[in-house]
Amino acid sequence: MRKWYNKLFLNDVRNAVEKYNMIENNDKIIVGLSGGKDSVFLLYSLLLLRENSYLNFDILGLHIDIGIGIDMSDTEKFCRENKVPYIYENIHIIDKIFEDKKSPCYLCSKMKRGAMARIAEDNHVNKIALGHHKTDIAITFLLNLIYTGKLETFKPISYNEKHNLQLIRPLIYIDEKTIEKVVKDEQLPLGKNKTCPKDKINKRNEIKVLLENIEEKYPDFQDKTVRAIENFEQGNLWL
């Protein structure tokens, strides 16, 4: 690891984990590997965290194929080289989710989460790590504000009572540009050949363009969004 990675991102991962008590000794954590940059960066970050902290926990890599057939061979090799067990599961739901023309992404996410919970239970896993980052927080916040009229975004840690699982998001203080840089510099393995046909044609991508426009004038907007969420007080609003 390059020493300046601590300042670039690892300290932020450590701060998020410690502030929200995301990881404890003897945890067994599944990292959902989609084939994209965010999830492989999350895996890389957790490996570095385990190597450079007092925490001792197990990591498993999981790729759920919805029927697209992304080539994950390089990612599987990376897991093997780092002694991370790799699980592949094909649930082949692609035809079913695209029957829902209004919200295929929501249905896909819901069905993949169900599969992840089942696999976690089968492997005696107590936590699932997801690769949502600071840019995702800002996008989700704007998406809910504009399209649903709600002040809402995902939480750093949440609990799945049905499956007795915690969902953790260690990258909440890391922006997407940092992830892109590290993935490129370290040549971290991405899925090849195929991507989701809805990858760039959805509301999230539309809001991402809006966020980029906002940041041209207000470059610290992502930081301010996270700060506003963390410093929220009920009395500041009407109810």
Rank of each mutant, 00 (worst) to 15 (best):
residue 106 Y to G: 10
residue 120 A to C: 00
residue 63 H to S: 10
residue 95 D to P: 01
residue 47 L to H: 01
residue 49 L to T: 01
residue 94 I to Y: 13
residue 62 L to K: 03
residue 69 G to C: 07
residue 81 E to P: 00
residue 122 D to V: 11
residue 106 Y to S: 14
residue 46 L to Y: 01
residue 130 L to V: 14
residue 76 E to T: 05
residue 61 G to Y: 02
residue 68 I to V: 14
residue 90 N to H: 09
residue 79 C to F: 02
residue 56 N to L: 12
residue 55 L to Q: 12
residue 115 A to K: 11
residue 80 R to W: 07
residue 94 I to A: 06
residue 54 Y to E: 15
residue 66 I to Q: 03
residue 118 R to A: 14
residue 127 K to A: 10
residue 87 I to G: 06
residue 70 I to R: 00
residue 42 L to K: 03
residue 80 R to D: 06
residue 122 D to H: 09
residue 76 E to H: 06
residue 49 L to F: 12
residue 41 F to Y: 04
residue 94 I to G: 01
residue 101 K to C: 08
residue 43 L to D: 02
residue 121 E to L: 15
residue 95 D to E: 15
residue 60 L to G: 05
residue 46 L to S: 01
residue 50 R to S: 08
residue 96 K to M: 14
residue 71 D to C: 02
residue 82 N to M: 00
residue 129 A to I: 03
residue 52 N to Q: 15
residue 58 D to E: 15
residue 47 L to G: 03
residue 71 D to R: 07
residue 98 F to W: 13
residue 92 H to V: 08
residue 90 N to I: 11
residue 56 N to D: 15
residue 52 N to C: 06
residue 121 E to G: 05
residue 91 I to E: 04
residue 114 G to E: 14
residue 65 D to L: 11
residue 99 E to D: 13
residue 73 S to G: 04
residue 42 L to S: 05
residue 86 Y to I: 05
residue 80 R to Y: 12
residue 56 N to I: 14
residue 114 G to Y: 02
residue 41 F to C: 00
residue 97 I to E: 09
residue 100 D to A: 08
residue 107 L to A: 08
residue 125 V to C: 06
residue 93 I to W: 11
residue 59 I to T: 12
residue 95 D to M: 07
